[in-house]
Amino acid sequence: MALQQITLHVNGEDHNLTVRSADTLLFVLREKLGLTGSKPGCLNGDCGACTVNVDGWPMKSCLMLAIEAVGKQVTTIEGLHNTPIQQAFVEEFAFQCGYCTPGFIMNCHSLIEQHPDADGQTIKEWLESNICRCTSYIEIEKAVKSVLRKD
């Protein structure tokens, strides 16, 4: 039982995998599926670099066991293609080293999905979950606001 056969639904595809119960979703995405876009920054739920989208909501993939993701739709940064939020990050210079970027974008992407009308307070509440050490956050704020529905 320490090893389990599971099926993970990631970026629209099913993957049959053998995992340890103790393996985090982040570990399995990176080491078993080669999806290295989700980054380890703390493995402790603190930094947000590993954020993916699970059933439409942001999830720190280091805080979830792979086995908990069975039956759920997992989307990683590799599952986004030319979305407005990616475009906005590029145009607004919303990253420098880029290490926090996949996590930030996945969080923003979930926010846009869940609250397309989010106000400043909601944006802050959501985006506090990720750390960017390079930028000043102003650029990220501009990027996400440019994609959210404006009233």
């Binding site: 947000g48 909501w57 942001p58 999830m59 805080l63 979830m64 969080n107 959501w126």
Partner: peptide, 12 residues
């Protein structure tokens, strides 16, 4: 609750 940890972590 909304002050515990951070928004994403509270999803877990």
């Amino acid at each position: 609750a909304s002050e515990v940890a951070d928004h994403t972590a509270r999803g877990k």
